[in-house]
Nucleic acid binder design. Structure first.
Lengths: 211, 211
DNA sequence: GCTGGAATATAACGGTGTTATATATTAGAA
DNA sequence: TTCTAATATATAACACCGTTATATTCCAGC
């Protein structure tokens, strides 16, 4: 029984590792069922018996991606609210760069036909819940009645943070990649997209009176 | 000569109209070469002789999308800077909803293998240039030296506007769609993603002292 | 009317996701 | 230990995809 589970689990682990490796190096185009099966040393039917086909493979990678997003929210203890926010910002921007394949999958830029499973959707909702919880602790106590309940204010803040950061990462992938000059000052505008994103986050923090 | 050009142009127009119609109703999955050819009444070879294949079809749709983005920046004359900004905001958010297929294509959520042609990239750069020009006119005169040149300040503002709006539209497509309640108050959080985006833009405008 | 270039139609290529079918493996019961 | 049934696997095949080779048709110009 143990040996049988080990063999089946071994096949599953081999398949997922093969999928992750191919995905990190070549993106979604690199993870055909045939390519994964060949790299994992199984038959294409194994992708279906162990993982519900491409759907299961993409779900697993999607969940990996949201685990990375959750990890980006972990900051050092003892920092000021602004320092915490800036550290999480840098971690998120680096995620968008260093795990580009996972990032693109999360935001639908990998396989337009992919629809996350219920389990995968639950994990992304958890990620958003964690974001709301973490960013709410950064907000100063609110006094003004017009700003709505602290729950609503916390969620609006979380949304603005995420929309702004994701906006920069996505624009970097599709529009600004041609004009960002992380490495080359010869490009037209001569600016750094990450510094631009950091400045935007600082301005947002100031508008919420975080310092 | 005229009749022959008309016939060739007729074929091109039929192909592009077929592609746009299928794209608007079914997204990128609906625009296979065979489906477009059948709907346009030509052979698949016609997609290649008139349009350089799928590349040319996607380029044409991509350009349509950026034309829509540029149109979203056209606002009524005589408005205050803040009213102009809010009108453009509403137009952009509606674009993300009503032309979802085009919007997804622009931001790489349609066909991960698609790389815009040089012509298409030039048109998107024009779009960004227009955004910078339009939003710069909304900024009050800057006095503080620490805020950088007015060109840099204008571009940073344009980027923040676009990152924020695109961030909201993209999150709506992929994460917040499950929790937005445009139509149904039964969903968990009971809020309106567009109102949230508007509030974020107002806050950003205030931080740039636009009113 | 003929010729050559352009356009078109069709079938085929090599890829994809998926699975039907045959075969191999293995656990459990007798 | 043997047999059976369930599970897993390997292979080939299906239908679809983007693309194009090849044959045929159309048409402009001489």
């Amino acid at each position: 029984m143990i040996e049988r589970n080990s063999k089946s689990e071994l096949a599953q682990n081999n398949i997922l590792k093969a999928a992750s490796d191919l995905f990190l190096s070549g993106g979604v185009k690199a993870i055909s069922a045939r390519a994964i099966a060949q790299k994992a040393g199984v038959s294409t039917m194994g992708i279906y018996s162990h993982f519900n086909g491409k759907q299961g493979i993409l779900d697993a990678l999607y969940i990996e991606g949201f685990e990375l997003v959750s990890q980006a929210m972990n900051v050092d203890a003892g920092l000021t609210p602004l320092a915490s926010l800036m550290q999480a910002t840098d971690q998120y921007l680096s995620l968008g760069e260093n795990y580009e394949a996972h990032y693109r999958l999360i935001f639908g830029e990998a396989d337009s036909g992919y629809e996350p499973s219920a389990e995968a959707k639950a994990i992304r909702l958890e990620s958003f819940g964690k974001l709301v919880a973490v960013t709410s602790t950064l907000l100063p106590a609110s006094g003004a009645e017009t700003e709505g309940s602290s729950d609503e204010r916390g969620r609006q803040f979380a949304l603005e943070i995420w929309a702004l950061l994701h906006g920069f990462v996505s624009l970097k992938h599709h529009t600004l990649g041609a004009i960002s000059n992380d490495d080359s000052p010869a490009k037209p505008y001569h600016w750094n997209w990450k510094d631009s994103a950091r400045a935007a986050i600082r301005r947002l923090a100031a508008s919420y009176r975080i310092d």
